[in-house]
Simulated scan of single mutants.
Amino acid sequence: MMQHWIGRRVIVDRMDGHKDPVQGILLKWDDEAQLVVVGAKRIKIPFAQIARIHALPEDAHGRGKRKARSSLHSVGYIMRQPLQFDNAIYFRSAVTIWKGPKLIAYRAVVTSHDETYVELENGQKFEKDLYTFVVRSRRGQR
């Protein structure tokens, strides 16, 4: 059981002949199916093909882009502008919520927001300054 890796940014080195390691957020660790699911493209890697999993350093996921209008994130775009939150509410967009490298909520639906807080469909409130809100996107697909 390696559930502590879920929600963390990792690099997965493979033994299956692929030269490039897979880098991204570990979304699922499935003991029953004997595989992990990594990254926005949801790459499935069987346990038998994993040589090593190691965490990416916290600064490896673009913390320096904090002031950018809408920075890229591995699963979409980081929401910073009030209009982005308004659009997420209007379109009922799937939003992931992060605290540093840790995944806090997956596919959350935002129901309201103000200058300080964001409220989810289930009533949870998150402070905008303490959490990163990422709206899911289909960038790169045509």
Rank of each mutant, 00 (worst) to 15 (best):
R80P: 05
L26C: 10
Q23P: 01
I89M: 01
Q81G: 03
R136D: 00
R63P: 04
A94C: 11
T111V: 09
F126G: 06
R92I: 05
D114P: 06
M1Y: 03
D30N: 15
R107L: 05
G39N: 08
H73R: 15
H61K: 13
Y117C: 11
N87E: 06
F91A: 07
K41N: 03
R14I: 07
K19E: 12
H73P: 12
D59I: 13
I43K: 11
I50Q: 12
I53A: 10
L56R: 15
G39H: 06
D30R: 08
A94I: 04
S137P: 03
A40V: 08
F133G: 03
Y106F: 12
T96Q: 15
A40G: 15
F85K: 03
L120R: 02
A105E: 05
L35I: 04
I78L: 09
F91C: 01
H18V: 08
I45W: 12
V22G: 02
K125R: 15
Q84H: 13
S74N: 12
Y77V: 05
H4N: 09
R52V: 02
I89H: 02
A51V: 14
K19A: 12
W98Y: 15
S112P: 01
R9I: 02
K19W: 08
Q84R: 05
E32P: 01
A60I: 07
Y131K: 04
G17V: 10
G123C: 06
D20A: 14
G7L: 10
V109R: 09
R80Q: 09
Q81I: 01
E127C: 07
R92N: 11
L83T: 02
P46W: 09
V118C: 02
T116A: 10
S74T: 12
Y90V: 01
R80D: 07
D16Y: 12
V109H: 06
V118T: 04
I50T: 11
I11N: 02
S74H: 12
K99Y: 15
D16E: 08
A55S: 15
I25P: 03
V135W: 00
V12N: 04
R136Y: 02
P101F: 06
R80G: 10
Q84E: 13
Q3F: 07
E127A: 05
S74C: 10
F85T: 06
A108V: 03
K102M: 14
A33S: 05
S71I: 02
M1P: 11
A68D: 07
F85P: 06
S137D: 08
R52A: 14
L120V: 03
R142E: 00
G39I: 05
R80A: 10
N122T: 14
I104T: 10
R63F: 11
R63H: 12
F133C: 05
P46T: 09
Q141C: 01
A51P: 04
T111R: 01
I11H: 01
L130H: 08
K102L: 11
Q3S: 07
T132A: 03
K65E: 13
R14V: 13
G39E: 08
Q34C: 11
Q23W: 09
K102A: 15
G123H: 08
I11M: 08
Q84S: 13
N87Q: 05
L130G: 05
L35F: 10
M2Q: 12
F91S: 04
G24C: 13
L83Y: 11
T111Q: 04
D20Y: 08
R66Q: 12
A88E: 09
K102E: 15
H54K: 14
E119R: 10
G24V: 11
Y106V: 02
S71F: 07
Y90Q: 03
W5R: 12
